[in-house]
Design a protein around this nucleic acid. Sequence first.
DNA 1: TGTACATCAGTGAACGCGCGTTCACTGATGTAC
DNA 2: TGTACATCAGTGAACGCGCGTTCACTGATGTAC
Lengths: 189, 189
Amino acid sequence: MRYSEDHKAKTHQRIVEEAALRFRRDGVGATGLQSLMKGLGLTHGGFYAHFKSKDDLVETALQHAAAEQERSTARMTQGDTPLQGLLKGYLSSRHRDNPGAGCPLPTISAELGQRGEASETTDTLIRNLLTLIEQHLPGEDASAESVQMLSAMVGALLLSRSVKDPELADRLLKTTRAQLLAKVATVQA
Amino acid sequence: MRYSEDHKAKTHQRIVEEAALRFRRDGVGATGLQSLMKGLGLTHGGFYAHFKSKDDLVETALQHAAAEQERSTARMTQGDTPLQGLLKGYLSSRHRDNPGAGCPLPTISAELGQRGEASETTDTLIRNLLTLIEQHLPGEDASAESVQMLSAMVGALLLSRSVKDPELADRLLKTTRAQLLAKVATVQA
DNA sequence: TGTACATCAGTGAACGCGCGTTCACTGATGTAC
DNA sequence: TGTACATCAGTGAACGCGCGTTCACTGATGTAC
C-alpha cells in the first residue's frame, strides 16, 4: 500500500513519541520493539524501515525527550518568579507520577549511564538546564548553586519515585521543594 | 556430593554478594541468573536450592546492599567532622566509579521504583540515612535540610554517572560536594 | 572396622517465552504511455 | 481516459539467542548397622 507523501514521516514521529514515553515510564531495557509497534497498531517488521536499530531509536527518543524537557523548563521559568515556577513544576507530584512525560535524566539518561552507553544528548540537556537555572540566580555563585539545585531536583524526583510509602514519597518531594524555594527567596531578597 | 556443614550458607552468601554487586553495577534487568551463577563457578540449576525466584534474590541483595550502605555511612560520619566525612565519601569519584560497591539508591532502588516494584528496604534505608544526617545537622531545620542534602547527594552521583564528558561529570560531583560542604560549615559556624 | 544406604548441594538438559533483527512478500497508490 | 507497471510502507513468519524456571539425575560424604 502506498501512502500520502508525509505518511512515513508521521509514522516515524509516532514511533519516536511512543518510545520516548515508554522508555521513560517503563525503562529502555523493559520496552520491547514488538510491543511498542503493536501499541501503535503496526507490526514489528516495519520498524526497520524507520530506524537502523533499537539503539538508533533510543538516541532519537532521548533527543526528543530532552528537547521536550528544555521547552517545558523554559516555559516554567517564563513567569515573573522563574525559579519558583521551575521548582514547583519539576518537583510536583504530577511530574513524579508521570515519568513518561517528564524529564529523561532520572530515567533514560540514568539507564544509559549505568549501561555505559552515555549519550552526548544527556550532557547537552544538563548543560542547558544548568544555564537556564543560572540565568535566574543572582550572585557570583550562580553557576555552582545551579549544579547543586539541579542535583537536588533530580535526586528528589528519583527518590520520591523509588519509595513505597506514599507519605515518605511526598515528604521527600515537598521538603526538597520547600527548601529550594526558601533558598531562592533568600538569595533574591 | 555432600559438603561441610556451613558450605550451603557460604554459597548462599556468595550468591547474595555477587548479585548485590552486579545489580548495582549492571542493573537488575540486565543481570541474568545463568551468567551470575557461572561467574561464581556454579551452574544455573542450583540457584533454586538457595532462592525461591529471581525476585527473592533481588530483595535479599537489596537488603544486603542497604545494610552495607548504612554501615559505610555510619563509618563516614564517625570522625570529628561527620558531615564533611560523609560528603567526601559519598560524593567521591571512587564512589561514582564503583557503583557495584556503592549506594543502592541510584541503582537498584531506582530501577525497582521505575518497575513499580518499590521495596520497603528502600524506605528504611532512606529513613535511616536521613536520621543519620539529621543527627549531625544543628538547628531546628535539621530534618528538612537532611532531605535536601540526601536528594542532592543521590542526584549528583546519578548525574555524574550519566554524563559522557568526564569534565562535566567531575564538575557535577565536585561542585555539589563543595556547595554542601560550604553549607555545612556555615550552619555549624 | 567394614559395608550398605540416605542425604542433598550442585549438574545440565529441557521448557516456553520474548527479545532484536532479517527478509520475501503484499497491495494501494502514483506514474508512464 | 484507460491500462501496465513501479514504488515502498507495512506485513508476518522465521532466525538465533538468552531469559527465568523445572526436574531427573549425580556422587561425595555422613550415618546406621
